[in-house]
Structures are given as C-alpha cells and as structure tokens.
C-alpha cells in the first residue's frame, strides 16, 4: 500500500523536485514577477515566464484573443520587454518564488539561430531553473519566417546554439525545447533536438488556426491567424506527447488543453513527465492550479495511484512504457 498522506503530487523533473506536476505554460500571465508568484501560490509546481526575445516588442494590435467555443485563439505577438529587462524581471521572480519552493522557467525566442544563443546567455544571468526555447510561436511568421520547429535541422541548430551559448557558464541551466504540433512527424523533430543536446521537451505550442466573423467577412484577430489552445488542443497534444515519449528518453512538459485533474492524468499517461497548464486560467481563473491539483489528487486516490510517477506513460504501448519508466 502506498502512503497517500505524503504529498502524492510531489514529483521529480530533471534535477528538480516539484510539489505538483502542474507547470504554468509560457505566454499565460507570465509577464511579471507578481503574476508568476500568484500562479505559484495558486498551486503551480513550476512557472514559466512569457517568452522574451532580443529586443522589446509591443505585440499585435487588438483583437489578440478570444474564446471561439471549442477553445481559445490568440495572437498576442510575443509582447516582451527584451532580454536585458526580462533578465531583471526573472531575477525578481526568482526572489519571490524561492520561499514558495517553486522553480522558474525562462522562455526565449529569436529571429535567427545565433540570436537564440545570445538571448539564452542574457536570461541565464537571472539563473532560471530551466530555459525553454520557444521555436514554435505560430503568430510571428511574417517577421521571423517559418518557425524553427518545422524542420529537424533548424530545430537542432537552435538547440545546439543555445547549448553552446550556455556551456561556458559555471552552472548552465537545463534546456527544454518547445515543439509545434503542426509538423508531419513530431517524433523526428524530438529526436533531432534530443541529439542536439536538449535536456527536455515541451510539447506542444498552440495549433495555427483562424476564426472568421461571417457578418464582418473578416478574420477576427488583427493578426488574422492565431494559435488554438484549450479543449480543441488537448487531443492534438496528447497524441504529440505520446509520439515523443516513444521517440526519445527526455522528460516531457506535456502541454495543451489541460483544464481538469483528469486531463492532467491523461497527459501524464500519454508520457508527460509534468503537465503544462495555460488556457485553464481563462476557463477557471488563476485558481485553476489549486482546483486541478485537488482533482488530480482525488482521481489518484479513487483509482489507487500513490504518486504522479505511477501515472507516467500508462497509456503507452507496453514496451515503450517500461522503457520510459526506466529512463525518465
């Protein structure tokens, strides 16, 4: 029998011990130290800051997001204060998160392979616990060309550039690469970033989509296209995590459409090591983390699971399940 009185949601991710497998996903309220701290107080086991690039960006004009019924669509446009200022925000966020025991993930994007390395080096000054490399934002295509997540070669090149840029640091933070769902073979991309030195994989980013208002005869978003998240993304994300978990031995931050504790359990069963939570903040408020934690704990108790680790990879084919348990 498992002892369920001992914080059953506590789990390991890389070198980190998390009090919950829920991770605030990048791009969701991660714009300030105080909002990151709020997500942590609400129950997130780890929090990810909004992606930052080399220079400040205002983002796209309104409308930037809406709930279209099956999920959300957004094209915020990578609003950020630039890497230098972001490093200061991350340092302050770390200070607020430390007493809560919640690790901090920095998220970076850039327009070129070399710039990815430069931005990584700047944000590393704040000593985040992990750097997430966003090679898959779907909303800035006009400015940055095809997202780097589209091809194994470009995904690997970015991963390699970031690893090299961090290698000279005394304590380089581990790197997770955030993949796009809209690729023909996500396992290939996952293998490419693993071979290039990624320590973890975040899967997935939003799915490119469009909402048209028929009466206006216009796409609703000012950017016309945006990223689909929320309930519509969940089956897409589950499948992607399932494929990646069989392709590589890296830990996975499984992200996409997790709104409830049972959703989180499903993501773990698909092979995720921990579970990203984003759009749930719209559906359930910032309190979503506390609610999902409670629901996951209830589900585990009802089904007889004693730890998060027991759920990981349960829905994988038997051979992959055993392999995954041995490695991650």
């Amino acid at each position: 029998m498992h002892d369920r009185t001992k914080a059953p949601l506590a789990c390991d991710f890389l070198h980190l011990r998390l009090r919950s497998p829920l991770v605030l996903a990048s791009g969701i309220i991660g714009t300030s130290p105080t909002l990151l701290a709020r997500a942590a107080r609400s129950g997130a086991g780890m929090v990810t800051a909004k992606s930052c690039g080399p220079t400040p960006r205002a983002g796209h004009p309104n409308p930037v997001a809406l709930d279209w019924g099956g999920g959300l669509i957004n094209a915020i446009g990578l609003t950020n204060p630039g890497a230098e200022h972001e490093a200061a925000l991350l340092a302050e966020a770390k200070r607020l998160l430390e007493p809560l025991g919640v690790p901090l993930v920095a998220s970076i994007f850039a327009g070129t392979v070399a710039e990815f390395g430069q931005v990584a080096a700047v944000v590393a000054q704040a000593q985040p616990d992990l750097i997430e490399v966003n090679i898959s934002c779907p909303n800035v295509g006009d400015e940055f060309g095809t997202p780097f997540a589209g091809l194994p070669e470009s995904a690997a090149a970015v991963t390699d550039a970031v690893r090299r840029a961090l290698a000279s640091l005394p304590q380089p933070p581990p790197v997770s690469v955030k993949l796009a769902p809209n690729v023909p073979d996500i396992a290939r991309i996952a293998r490419a970033v693993a071979e290039a030195g990624a320590d973890a994989i975040t899967a997935v980013n939003t799915m490119p989509g469009m909402v048209i208002d028929a009466e206006a005869a216009r796409p609703v978003l000012a950017n016309r296209v945006g990223g689909i998240s929320g309930p519509a993304l969940k089956p897409v994300a589950l499948r992607a995590v399932y494929e990646i978990a069989q392709a590589v031995d890296l830990p996975i931050i499984g992200t996409g459409g997790v709104l409830t504790g049972v959703d989180a359990a499903e993501m773990l069963m698909a092979g995720a090591t921990v579970v990203g939570v984003g759009s749930a903040v719209w559906y359930r408020g910032v309190e979503a983390f506390a609610q999902i934690n409670a629901e996951l704990q209830q589900f585990m108790a009802a089904q007889g699971y004693g730890s998060v680790a027991e759920l990981r990879g349960l829905a994988l084919p038997p051979a992959a399940r055993e392999r995954r348990c041995a490695h991650v």
Partner: peptide
C-alpha cells in the same frame, strides 16, 4: 488586450 486572462496586460497591483 486579450481580456481572457492570458496576456497579463491588465495586471494591477501585485498580481
């Protein structure tokens, strides 16, 4: 901006 709790633009006070 987003008005759906994602973008953080409307933060007031400490969170």
């Amino acid at each position: 901006r987003c008005a759906v709790g994602l973008c953080g633009s409307c933060e007031v006070g400490a969170g």
